[in-house]
Design a protein around this nucleic acid. Structure first.
Lengths: 157, 157
DNA sequence: ATCATTGCAAAAGCTTTGCATAAGA
DNA sequence: TCTTATGCAAAGCTTTTGCAATGAT
């Protein structure tokens, strides 16, 4: 019986990736680290430290914010999450493993965020790599403006 | 005799734009505000608060960091500068007035930043506007990877 | 038995703010 | 004269860090 992507929380590849990363670095796979990753995997979206901390607290988990701050660089380093943007005085992160690479469209008024896939960026990357001699590994595109609702509300074109 | 773009510092349109903005808002055009804008215009590139503050101090200008922090939102609001990215624990800004809209290509190793113009993003904006019903006003694209020098140094493809 | 990790509280660093004084308009 | 702006220092926040205790391997 082969393990599938949704074969129970611990069967998800994210946990194996994290474990392998931790072991390879000679670190330790602790309950706290697993709890943090599980919460990120389960809610599978954007998050920030404070919000993640409160969510875990409300579920009765007892762990410190310091542990979250110390775990985040590890999760970034093994490619499970990434920084998305800095706003309201703190960083916002996003769970990316297994998600098709996407970009963000954000409303400047209500802060709603839509996601979109833009395949042509691959070509742009290639062109830049050639033109500047870079080894390109990724990009972040954020398009901003006003969402349909706020456009109406603000009487914009 | 018509005023040209480089007809002395005070003849540059940036100052007029800032003055008009200040007046329109019922604020006051102070020496401190002008000194800050002049430094940004003259160095015409990326900057952060601390660096700008030290540069002005070294030139013998006596003004406080608080004034810089209070002036920045005004300069953003009238479109003379913009936030570029948050790194090393603080925000980085960029002087944009009169600069062709460009995107950034950054080296993850040495932090070098190259700029490039990518006209196809206009089409992407239009497509998104139609598809999501947004009124799109701008975008930020950052492509990252390793510059030619660091590629060699790190032995990357 | 080792040595990394945790929680806590303190420290650090950037940014904001309260207040008395200065100074545009 | 009336208000806004400035400088300073304190406060506010997020994030980092030192340390003793804990726990993974």
């Amino acid at each position: 019986m082969t393990r599938e992507k949704n074969d129970g929380p611990q069967g998800r590849p994210e946990f194996q990736i994290f474990k392998d990363y931790i072991r390879k670095k000679g670190l330790r796979y602790t309950p706290e680290r697993e709890i943090i990753l599980r919460e990120i995997v389960n809610t599978g979206d954007h998050f920030d430290v404070d919000e993640l901390y409160l969510r875990l607290r409300n579920k009765g988990e007892r762990l410190s914010k310091a542990s979250i701050y110390r775990t985040i660089p590890l999760l970034i380093d093994c490619g499970l999450i990434q920084e998305v943007y800095y706003e309201d005085g703190h960083m916002h992160y996003e769970f990316i493993y297994g998600h098709e690479h996407h970009c963000h469209l954000r409303c400047l008024e209500c802060r709603r965020i839509d996601e979109f896939v833009e395949p042509s960026l691959k070509k742009i990357e290639d062109r830049l790599a050639r033109k500047f001699g870079y080894r390109v590994v990724g990009h972040k595109l954020e398009v901003y403006g006003y969402c349909p609702e706020c456009r109406k509300k603000l009487n914009l074109r």
